[in-house]
Every structure is written in structure tokens, then in C-alpha cells.
Design a protein around this nucleic acid. Structure first.
Length: 664
DNA sequence: CATTTTGCA
């Protein structure tokens, strides 16, 4: 339906404060606003508008503002603006709240609400695509929103792909005449989204970019961290002022890079001004991450050398994070990704080449405030061989959790959704359905069971959700929730270069005789007993930020338990059979991830018959006949990681549909 | 003996 344009309040009638109106006046002078009226016009005539934006055009803050200004926040409905990353969402929230004269409301999970200053009405909400997808499970028509803005759609997270298909279906079956959808992607991919949503209109804002100079290496280098440091030194000493961002692949490189940087800065002495080195990765709490947005240090004395900020970051800073002041980007050209192989039923971490699009986003970080410079630690020839776009996550992910969500959303399977690209290979889907059937989430004909329905309430892997909903049967809900929380945050053990030995000792003090899961629980309990004390964490080489978030996760999981009326039945951890019960609880979810000791002394996974080894970090003292494992890591050898010993007869007891007496 | 990206509540 083409709704009447009269429903849209003209901007002038909107009850915005004087400060906000002034801001609008100023914004209208920026290039992107030259297309303001065109955008509003498109929005009033079309249900779907695709914004084909060059990076750095400021669309993530400006488009929502234009939408609000055009009066689409009326009638008690909200406007959702999704971002692929939580960090981006919260930072943008703050920024927009500051720019518009708007109160920052409560922070709910990962989303932030705004209140229009003239009244209590909620008008804009930044959230991640995953959260919006979860919301649609309980609010099938997404009735609470009048406009949904999907940002950075071209990054193609699993949630984005499913959301796109879901929203497309919602519009096509005409469930929401009044819903407006704004899809924001990069310029290259925009047409694809226009064609996907029939009748969509493309709007193209102008970039507000400074030029960027790109420098390639002529020869390949041995050590990327050293090569990066070389470029940092060069930028610090001989290039003009401006902050630096270094993209590396992982935590280990970040730690190494930061410590080398520290030394480098000392060596350079008074040739340079004050330098702040800021690591940026997911194992840091939000507050620490937000430090990245603080301005570089001021010169130590008047007329002294200008201070600089050096960010050492993973992927997390790559998309739409416009950190002001960055002038230099150093890009290693690699990314770490989890890739799932459905045939082998194995997930592995791979260090892969980035795409051209990704390389462009990385270099784009450096051109927000001034002309920038990007050092690429690879040659032009190598760049030419990069894939043009990022690989969609849906093609390389374990789909079990997604299929479960899709069932909950009321679709028979993935193939009934009109996906943007050809669907993932049938093997991947079959594997996922098989897994869900084993877990009892789907019945023989593939319908969602009661148990499966409960599982969809948890934002976790199906095995983990299963483990949780089964936990009351083994009187260990509290402990299982703690373990689930510990498993869903990054590794909490610190291993600094200096003090590696002490760190190892401290780690083994938490060891449980036959279970890494229980060792993790020991860490959690010790952390709680010490009230999260930071000196305790430091002394024990525990990453406080990680434990903090584990604690937070656990709290959320407890809330979900209450919400779905599952009783938190747990016995005291010190009771004699408590450890056995917890291990049974683990098995109730992870019975498909079992490995058995072979005659030859190797472990074989029960599913898939892969030869594996216990990961060297495991605390298991012996080599028991049966172990359950949390994950399967493909590295120099096949390792299973986070392991718990289980007696063979438990398998038959707890998963009789998989293990029969005859087998053992 | 080998250490892992990001996303959810």
C-alpha cells in the first residue's frame, strides 16, 4: 500500500528542541544532507529504501535523524537501527544522544533507548541485528517499530541474512503496510539489495571523505608485527600528526604488538610526543573499549610535540567505527575466521586473507578527520588476488542454532526463506537438522518440540541450551549456568610474556581432577568469593573483564530460566555427588561430542571417527576411556579442547537414543 | 605440548 504522505508530519511541526533544530540547520550544509529531501521523498513513496553509501558519509547517525525529523516516530512506535556490532551500537547511541537534544534512556541489554525531550515516547533504538532477530521471535510482525534501519548490511552476518529474508517475507505477505525499511549498504552491493526487495528505491548520499594515500609493500615480510612496528615508527617520527590504527588478527598479536610498541616508544624518547597505546579486542569490557574514543593525549608542555593515540585492534574496529583523529591505518591483510565443514562436522579457526571490501574499510578508518594514509603490509599483486567481497557467514557457519530460530519463526526450513544468495549447501542444513533431532529439539518429521521451543529462548548453541534445560533433572542448574557463561566468553586466563610460569601455576591451582569444565567453574566460584576483586584477579592471572562479562551472562541466563518457568534446582556444590551431577548435566547437552580412547592409544570422536588429541591446555591428569569435549580445534593437529571425563555407562543412561548397551 | 574473530542474554 502506498500510504498517504499526509500521515508524515512536516519537519517543522516536529516538537524538537531549539538546540536540535540548530543542529539540523548546520547539518543541512553537509554534503550528505543535500539529498535529505530526496531521501524523505523516497521514504514516503516506497516501503523499502536502499541507501548506497560511501564509507564515512555519516549515514549511521544522519539517516536515523532524518527519519525522525520526517515524523516517522509517531504513534508510539519506535525506530530500530541495527548495527553488526555491539560496540558500534553503543557508541553511536551516545553520539546521537549527544548531538540531538535527547535523553539517553535505560540501557537494555545491548540496545539503548532514546527519549524525545518533549515527552516520554521512545523514538530511536540502536541494537544489533542478532537482537532484532530475537525480538521477532516474540513479536512476529515487529509491531513495535514503524521504521527498521539495517546498517552495514553488506557485512552479511548470519543474523543479517536471516533478518533480510524474514523482513522481505513480512512485507510480501503484506503483514505490515505501515512498516518502512531502510537498508544501508556500500555502493558496490546496493543494486543487489534493490533487486532483492522489489520496488525498492536507491538513494545515494554524497561522501564527505578526505583523500587517502595507499602504500603497498614491495616484498613480502616474514613478521607482520615487526613490519607494522616499522610503519608506526615511521609515522610517529617523520609523518605529520594524527592517530594510528593497526589491524592484526588476534589477541596474541595484539599483546605482542603492544609490548613491542612500549619499547619502541621508549627508544624513540623525546623524538616523539606522548603516545597512548590502546589494545582493542572483544576480551575487553565495554568501558575499556570506549577508551579508544578518548582524544589523544595533549602535548606535555606548551608548544611541545603533539600526543598520539595508537590503537592495536582486531576486526572489531573495522566497520563503521569512525574514531575521530585517525590518520594512519596499518593493515596486515589477514583475518581470523571460524569456518565450519559440514562434511567433517568440524569447526576450525583459520587465518585468511581479507577481501578487497574489507581492505577498503580498513583504509577508510584513516580518512575521517583529515587526508589519511594507509600502509598495507602486502603487495599490490597480492591485493589484486583478494576476493572482492566478504564471504557471507551463512555459508561457513554451523547452522543448528539458526535452523532452530527459523523453526521458531514459523518456517519449515531454510529453503522456505527467500535468501539473498543461493542457500548454503544441503549437507550443512541436513547436518544441522540431524543435530537438532538428536537433541530432541525437533521431532522425526522436523517439527519444533516443546523442548526445542524452550531452547530457542536461550541465545546459545543448541547443545548448550539443551544442557541448561536438562540441568534441573540433575540438580545442578546453578553450576551448569555458571559453566555455560564461562564457555560463552573468551578465554579468561592471562598469559603475559613476563610471568608466564606464575600464570601457569595459578591456572593449575584451579584444576579439577577430571574436568576442564569444572576447573572453569572453580575459577568462577573463586572470582565470586573474592567479590570480583581486581587485585585478586591480577594476582591469579585472571582477566577481570572476561569474568565480569561471564557473570553478566549468567545473570541473564538465570532471568531466562525464570521467564520460561524452569525451576533452578541445584544442590550445594560441596555435596558429595555434586561433581558427578554436574558432569551428567554436561553430558545431557554434549552427548554428541564424545571421544573414545582407541586400542592404539589415540582418541576417536564418536561422531565422524576423527583421530584427535587432548588439547595441551587440558587439566586432565589421565587418559580416560570416554571424554566429552566443548570444541574441536583444527590446528597443527586435531585437538579437542575443554574436556570432561565421563564413565561409559552414563552415555547409555543419559543418551539411550544414541548409545546402546551393545556398543559398550 | 599450544593459546581463538565476532555476534546473543
Amino acid at each position: 500500500m502506498e500510504e498517504a504522505a499526509s500521515e508524515v508530519n512536516p519537519a517543522t511541526e516536529a516538537p524538537f528542541s531549539r538546540r536540535y533544530r540548530k543542529l539540523l540547520e548546520r547539518r543541512k550544509k553537509l554534503p550528505v544532507w543535500a539529498h535529505r529531501s530526496k531521501f524523505i521523498d523516497a521514504l514516503s513513496k516506497h516501503q523499502v529504501v536502499v541507501v548506497a553509501a560511501p564509507p564515512g558519509s555519516g549515514k549511521s547517525t544522519q539517516i536515523p535523524q532524518i527519519v525522525i525529523e520526517a515524523g516517522y516516530a509517531s504513534e508510539g512506535k519506535q525506530i530500530a537501527c541495527t548495527q553488526p556490532r555491539q560496540l558500534v551500537a553503543t557508541v553511536l547511541s551516545r553520539r546521537v544522544a549527544q548531538e540531538m537534544d535527547v535523553k539517553l534512556g535505560e540501557e537494555v541489554g545491548y540496545s539503548v533507548l532514546f527519549e524525545n525531550c518533549s515527552g516520554p515516547k521512545t523514538i530511536l533504538k540502536y541494537l544489533t541485528d542478532g537482537v532484532l532477530l530475537r525480538e521477532s521471535m516474540s513479536d512476529q510482525n515487529l509491531e513495535r517499530y514503524s521504521v527498521i534501519i539495517l546498517d552495514e548490511v553488506h557485512l552479511r552476518t548470519l543474523a543479517t541474512d536471516i533478518l533480510l529474508a524474514y523482513l522481505k517475507n513480512l512485507l510480501e505477505k503484506k503483514a505490515r503496510f505501515d512498516l518502512k525499511l531502510v537498508v544501508m549498504s556500500n555502493q558496490v552491493e546496493a543494486k543487489k539489495y534493490k533487486d532483492y526487495f522489489k520496488g525498492a528505491r536507491i538513494v545515494q548520499p554524497l561522501p564527505s571523505l578526505h583523500p587517502i594515500e595507499i602504500v603497498y609493500l614491495k616484498e613480502p615480510v616474514k613478521d607482520l608485527v615487526e613490519a607494522a612496528l616499522d610503519k608506526v615508527a615511521q609515522s610517529l617520527v617523520s609523518e605529520s600528526a594524527g592517530d594510528i590504527i593497526i589491524f592484526v588478527t588476534g589477541m596474541e598479536e595484539i599483546v605482542r604488538c603492544c609490548s613491542r610498541l612500549g619499547k619502541l616508544i621508549v627508544e624513540l624518547g623525546d623524538k616523539i610526543g606522548c603516545v597512548n597505546v590502546i589494545p582493542l579486542h572483544s576480551g575487553m569490557c565495554l568501558d575499556m573499549q570506549k577508551k579508544a574514543f578518548k582524544a589523544a593525549p595533549a602535548p606535555t608542555r606548551k608548544g611541545g610535540l603533539v600526543g598520539r593515540k595508537v590503537l592495536v585492534s582486531t576486526e572489531i574496529a573495522e566497520s563503521s567505527l569512525s574514531i575521530d583523529g585517525i590518520v594512519y591505518t596499518i593493515d596486515c591483510g589477514y583475518i581470523k575466521q571460524k569456518v565450519y565443514n559440514a562434511d567433517l562436522h568440524v569447526e576450525s579457526m583459520l587465518t585468511l586473507r581479507i577481501s578487497k571490501a574489507s581492505a577498503q574499510r580498513r583504509s577508510g578508518c584513516a580518512r575521517r578527520s583529515a587526508p589519511g594514509k594507509c600502509f598495507r603490509l602486502y603487495s599490490q599483486e597480492i591485493f589484486n588476488k583478494f576476493q572482492p567481497q566478504d564471504s557471507p557467514e551463512i555459508l561457513r557457519a554451523n547452522l543448528a542454532g539458526t535452523i532452530l530460530q527459523i523453526k521458531k519463526l514459523g518456517f519449515d526450513d531454510l529453503f522456505h526463506l527467500d535468501l539473498l544468495d543461493p542457500p548454503p549447501p544441503p549437507e550443512a542444513v541436513i547436518r544441522a537438522v540431524e543435530t537438532l533431532k538428536c537433541l530432541g529439539a525437533l521431532d522425526d518429521v522436523g517439527r519444533l518440540t516443546h523442548s526445542g521451543d524452550l531452547m530457542t529462548e536461550f541465545p546459545l548453541d543448541p547443545q548448550m541450551s539443551k544442557m541448561i534445560i536438562e540441568s534441573p533433572k540433575f540438580c545442578c542448574s546453578d553450576q551448569i549456568l555458571s559453566i555455560a557463561a564461562m564457555l560463552s566468553v573468551p578465554n579468561c586466563f592471562l598469559a603475559p610474556m613476563e610471568g608466564l610460569e606464575a600464570a601457569g601455576e595459578s591456572k593449575s591451582s584451579f584444576n579439577h581432577i577430571n574436568s576442564d569444565h569444572l576447573s572453569l567453574l572453580n575459577v568462577y566460584h573463586a572470582y565470586k568469593q573474592n567479590n570480583g576483586d581486581s587485585t585478586w584477579c591480577e594476582k591469579n592471572f585472571i582477566n577481570q573483564a572476561v569474568l565480569k562479562s561471564a557473570d553478566n551472562v549468567k545473570e541473564q541466563l538465570v532471568l531466562i530460566m525464570h521467564k520460561i518457568n524452569l525451576t533452578m534446582s541445584s544442590s550445594d556444590f560441596s555435596s558429595s555427588n555434586s561433581c558427578d551431577n554436574i558432569r551428567k548435566g554436561l553430558l545431557a547437552g554434549y552427548f554428541m561430542q564424545v571421544a573414545q580412547l582407541d586400542h592404539s592409544g589415540d582418541y576417536l570422536t564418536v561422531k565422524g571417527h576423527h583421530v584427535v588429541d587432548l588439547h595441551p591446555t587440558s587439566c586432565l591428569a589421565s587418559r580416560p576411556e570416554f571424554v566429552i569435549y566443548n570444541d574441536f580445534v583444527l590446528a597443527s593437529r586435531n585437538y579437542i579442547r575443554i574436556i570432561t571425563e565421563v564413565p561409559g555407562h552414563w552415555l547409555v543412561e543419559i543418551a539411550p537414543h544414541i548409545y546402546r548397551l551393545a556398543t559398550f
